[in-house]
Each structure stands twice: as structure tokens, then as C-alpha cells.
Design a protein around this nucleic acid. Structure first.
Lengths: 218, 218
DNA sequence: TTGTCGCATTGATCTGGATCAAATCGCCGG
DNA sequence: CCGGCGATTTGATCCAGATCAATGCGACAA
């Protein structure tokens, strides 16, 4: 099994062994649903490969993507009894599933682990506050640039530093993450490419002018 | 000292006594700053009376209010070393301060408490996701209505159920929370009042048509 | 009572991003 | 190679909410 990078770095070997004994390795095909908003929460997931789209829907179909989970990310922590958002695979995804029972037992037994999970949750909360700033107060161009820089940093922290940012999600996913329409996302990408700020490549974007981008993200 | 309603309900008497021995009761005048974004995090706070505005600023002065803390709420959890947002008092505020050292020691010693804090943090994260949906995908009228219903519920959970929702914050604060301008907030309030959906009263709003409001919030 | 200082409201106009409407591109299957 | 289908780009127009600009309204001090 792939090491649970984000949560388990500080665990002892026996704790890691216990964790792995409780984890159910699972595979999801492209587009497959891990879980659905409102459904009873049965499991917590740790993504080990691929990208997962996390989103909420309004009754009339409006969608807000609340995040993209990359390898190492934990999903379903915020469950009380029902999932508060839906999650589905963007491309092929591998994840470790922990049943609700196993998860709560583990958390009760291992304060170490709980502490790591809590750190993870508070970090997520900080990111959520950043996203509120972005959604409420930034322009379309700023939103796109912050998104690209954020994804670049996340890939970098996973050991994939590159000026080429992979974007496996659709333009619609990006639009729903940034509170824009697909047309505005497309036009803004085109404008940034004309500026030579970025270069649009298949499956992603190459950062050409990081200084300008960092200045805008400020 | 006022009981730490949100976190301590499930603690034993000796744990509560320990907690109270480490808490520094503090008072803040109207408009006074509890802490500032970017500064080294020295303390965690539990609000015991009054309302606190939590916000982030962009270098050019644009502001996003990320929340309003009511009695019982915990502030500063998401600190690693620096506060990720600023907090200041709306009206008079009383809070219990825990020094960073006392806080981390307490958390290490009392898994019970950590578990409660983690539940609190995951609940905050769920609220943050709701707010992303609101900021990214809802109209001005929907934003205002969701805000009013949300505040009503929060006061109700604190034992103050009422059709009159107190709004101690300014219109500007509400605008910066909802990603709107002060003019749009004001106009939308006026329109809802003309509809007889709400009645604007000094220091707050009276909910006149909860059915319509719940339908919009859907 | 009068001035004045922060809010808050209201009005007129403008505009960034939404909406409506076609192309165009890629990719896969036959 | 061709056809079809979903994703993306591009263009024309619209409009919700922003911006600019007064005006109103307490509360409080002189």
C-alpha cells in the first residue's frame, strides 16, 4: 500500500501497521462517485493516486466545487452522520477506505493520529478561508492566477515541482471552483496566454511569468 | 467564569477545573483587536460574551469577513505559528484566553478535549464549505436571506430563539462577509422589507415570512 | 437647539462577468 | 479517412451588482 503521506509521517511503526491493517485499498474509475452529499457517511478515504473533485449542489443544479483532493489528502473528516459534500474521481483514482467504525476506534485509541488529523483539518480550514477571500473579493483574472499558483504549490509539495501545472479537471470544474462560468475561465486563460503569462499545453498550463502571477496573487 | 459551552460539555469535573485554571478571563472594548493576521499566534480564545468579527485583508484594502464569532466559539485554532486572520470586537466582548503553551500542553494531556476541538474544527470546515457555495453561486438576495437564517439559528442554539435576529455588526461587515457592497446589502434589505419578508428594527431584523426565506435558502 | 460625524439609504450610471449563440478542436470508433 | 460527440473557444449582447454621488438620520457634544 502507498504510504499515507499526509497523516502518518509522525506515527510509529506499530501504529502504521495497525492503520494499514484497517485500510481497505479501493480503486475508482474515471468519473466514479466516492460518496454523495447527504448520504450516510460510511467511510473516510485517504487518496493515494489521482485527483478527486469535491462539490456541493443546490436543488436547482448550481454547483460549487469546494476543493480538489490530491494524493495524501483525507476525505470525509467533516462527517457527523452524513457527508456534507459529494466526491468523484477525475481520471483513475486509488484510495484507502476506513470504515466509520474502524475510523472512530482508531481515533479514540491513538491520540497521535487524532492530533495529526486535527492539524490536517485546521489547515483545510485555513485554505477554506483563503478560498472565501478569493470567491468574495477577487476578480476573474486573480481567481485563475491564484488557482494556478495554488495547484503548482500543491504538486510541488507532493514532490512534483514543475513550471507545468497539470490540470486534469475540466474547465467547468475550474469555473465551479472559482465561482465563474466556463466562458469566463476560457477567455481568461486565453488572455493570460496572449500576455505570455502562461502557455496553455495539453492537460495543463505552463507558468511563463511567475513574477507577474505572484504580484497579482499578492 | 462563564462555562465554556461549546467545547467543555463532555468534560469531567476535574478536566473542567484544570481548564479553568489555565484560562485568563479577558475583556475587550468595542472595536478593540483580539489579534491580527500574520502576527505570531500567542493565544487561543473562547468567546464568552459579545460578538467578534473575523476577517482577512488584501494588500490593497479589500476585506473578506470569514466569520462572526458568538459566545462559545473558539478562535485561533487554525494557527500554526501565525494567525491566518484578524479578529476584533463588535461591541464589548469577554473571552477566555489560553496561552499557546498552555493550549498545546492541555491538548496533549487531554484526548477528550482534543476530540471536542477536532469536532468543532470539522464543523467549522463544513460551515466554510457552505459559505463557499454562498459566495460562489448565490445571488445577493439569497446571500442575505441565508445570512439572516444562519444568524437566527446560531442565536437559537445559544438559547436565544427569537424571530428578531440581532445584527450588532455594520452593513459594511455584512457586505464583506457576503462578498457584496454596502449599497447592495442596504438595497436588498429595503426590498425584503417592502416584500414584508422581514421588518428592519433598530439593531437587527425581524423575520416576518420564514417560509419564503427557507424556500429561498433551500 | 444646532452642528457634526458615522452610519445607512437612495438614486443614476457603468461594467465585469453572465448569458445566449455559434464555431472549432480532439479524440475515439467504424 | 470520416462522422459524431463532448469539451473548449470565441463572439454578441445583457444585466446584477458595482461604482459614483447625494441625501437622510440618529446620537452625542457644545
Amino acid at each position: 500500500m502507498v504510504r499515507l503521506v499526509s497523516v502518518c509521517a509522525s506515527l510509529s511503526d506499530d501504529e502504521l501497521a495497525l492503520l494499514e491493517s484497517l485500510a481497505h485499498p479501493t480503486h475508482f474509475a474515471s468519473g466514479e462517485t466516492l460518496f454523495t452529499q447527504g448520504r450516510e457517511a460510511q467511510a473516510v478515504y485517504n487518496v493515494t493516486a489521482g485527483v478527486v473533485r469535491l462539490y456541493k449542489l443546490l436543488s436547482d443544479g448550481r454547483r460549487q466545487v469546494v476543493g480538489f483532493a490530491l494524493p495524501g489528502d483525507f476525505l470525509g473528516l467533516a462527517m457527523r452522520d452524513a457527508y456534507s459534500f459529494s466526491a468523484d474521481a477525475i481520471g483513475e483514482v486509488a484510495a484507502c477506505a476506513f470504515s466509520r467504525g474502524a475510523y472512530t476506534a482508531l481515533v479514540d485509541a491513538k491520540p497521535h493520529l487524532l492530533k495529526r488529523l486535527h492539524e490536517f483539518a485546521t489547515h483545510e480550514l485555513t485554505l477554506a478561508h483563503e478560498q472565501m477571500m478569493l470567491l468574495g473579493r477577487r476578480t476573474a483574472e486573480e481567481k485563475l492566477i491564484c488557482f494556478l499558483l495554488g495547484m503548482q504549490q500543491r504538486w510541488a509539495r507532493l514532490g512534483k515541482p514543475s513550471v507545468t501545472v497539470p490540470l486534469p479537471m475540466t474547465r467547468q470544474d475550474i469555473a465551479d471552483f472559482l465561482g465563474l462560468t466556463i466562458e469566463t475561465v476560457s477567455r481568461t486563460f486565453t488572455r493570460l496566454a496572449k500576455d505570455k503569462t502562461i502557455l496553455i499545453v495539453p492537460g495543463g498550463v505552463r507558468v511563463m511569468n511567475p513574477d507577474r502571477m505572484n504580484a497579482v496573487a499578492a
